[in-house]
Design a protein around this nucleic acid. Structure first.
Lengths: 239, 239
DNA sequence: GATGATTTGTGCGTATGTATG
DNA sequence: GCATACATACGCACAAATCAT
């Protein structure tokens, strides 16, 4: 049963879109899980109309997948997806940082520095995983914002939902927090130097490292054929 | 022996999505035009439910824009959009061609060559604009297909709708058909040489040239503030 | 296959909110 | 402001497709 309360502010379909997205990314809706419009509607105490509209949007983002028989299931990560998505990220985010370095005003650089300082403090405090993930995401988002290209932001947004699937896994392993932080620092250095070309290279290397780490973790966790989970598709009879 | 499969009719919301998209790209629905769900539903003799679902999808693609008061209007091109979108294309399609050159099998290279030959023939025949646009798009699409990265294809698809807005304008001007063809040829040369790195550069240059040409045309056509059209918002009383 | 149970697709009524005069 | 017209958001009912037995 779902106890999430709907606020009347945004339209229902909008709120449902965000909430369902969050549920998928956080694993509340397991990969491969079959979605049922009626059940969602009941859980949220709304009709199917807004649910359907939200679902269409999630489909376009790849978080929900529809088969030939109009059945919806939750996105299921795979090794090939990691490779494909991180190739895309390398391409888009290296453009992002290139533009950002070229555009950056003094206060932008300050913002980045503050964010890194906060992150450093959080790491030293042994802050919880969720917070580190959040700070790391913010670093990439801030650069994106500084780059001042709305369409680029949208595109990165389009795959972000899927890449966030992997953010948790990305922190697993020895010294990952520190490694990622150091690489972010390297990117920041190029902001101070005002060198877009080199910033691009460092960003590309950073995302490549993440990708390689993820691929390795993924193979370790799901050695056979890359199938994430077959057992969860039955957890449907909640109601 | 192959069994003959009948296609099941697509759901209305799916068909509406494609049709509306086409209408927007081809200018049947003018930029800035205010969309009315009820009217669309009446025009297509369906109810508002499938219209709403189609509209949500188009919104996510940026072809329809919703303002704070829940009013929908058709996307309106701008100079800044040209720059932003073509920067994104440079990034994504240079990745695309890089991967494609690395992956390309003999038959892929043949396919590309055939396509270029057809294009050449069409240009020499003075074929109609629509056909040239189609061939040029196919060239980029084929490379994308060869690159074998589904997510990359999706991302390019996400901005394609908007860039197609500009494809017509892109052919306007002296010798544009020939110029574009020559640049496609240069890209193809790198396939034969099997040089991904250089293919990338040539592709980037190609899209940059298109962008610069478009910006110039755009300024010529809409000198004041980049506003495409104010007069068309009235052409609604079709029914 | 035939039948009942699910689930998706679609039409339509109504409430709420927004523009217009 | 006020009344009217109109657009959108949502709920609900029924039809069509699919699944299970």
């Amino acid at each position: 049963m779902e106890s999430f309360k709907l606020k009347k502010a945004q339209p229902f379909y909008e709120q449902l879109y965000h909430r369902l997205k969050q549920m998928i990314i956080e694993g509340e809706l397991a990969p491969g899980y079959r979605i049922n419009e009626v059940k969602i509607a009941q859980d949220f105490h709304v009709s199917r109309s807004p649910v359907r509209e939200a679902v269409r949007a999630l489909e376009k983002e790849g978080l929900l997948v529809m088969n030939e028989k109009s059945q919806l299931t939750v996105y299921k990560p795979s090794l090939k997806d990691i490779e494909e998505l991180y190739q895309c990220r390398m391409s888009l985010e290296s453009l992002s940082v290139e533009l950002a370095v070229a555009n950056a005003k003094a206060h932008d650089i300050e913002d980045l520095e503050n964010l890194l300082n906060q992150t450093k403090a959080a790491i030293d405090d042994g802050a919880d995983r969720r917070m580190i993930i959040e700070f790391n995401s913010q670093f990439h988002d801030l650069i994106l914002a500084i780059s001042q290209n709305c369409h680029l932001q949208k595109l990165v947004g389009n795959i972000r939902a899927l890449t966030q699937f992997y953010r948790v896994m990305n922190l697993e392993g020895d010294g990952r927090r520190e490694t990622i932080f150091k690489e972010h620092q390297l990117i920041f250095d190029q902001f101070k130097k005002g060198n877009p070309e080199e910033a691009k290279n460092v960003m590309k290397a950073h995302i490549l490292h993440d990708m390689n780490h993820l691929k390795q973790r993924f193979i370790q966790k799901f050695p056979i054929g890359g199938d994430v989970d077959e057992t969860l598709s039955h957890s449907r009879h909640t109601r």
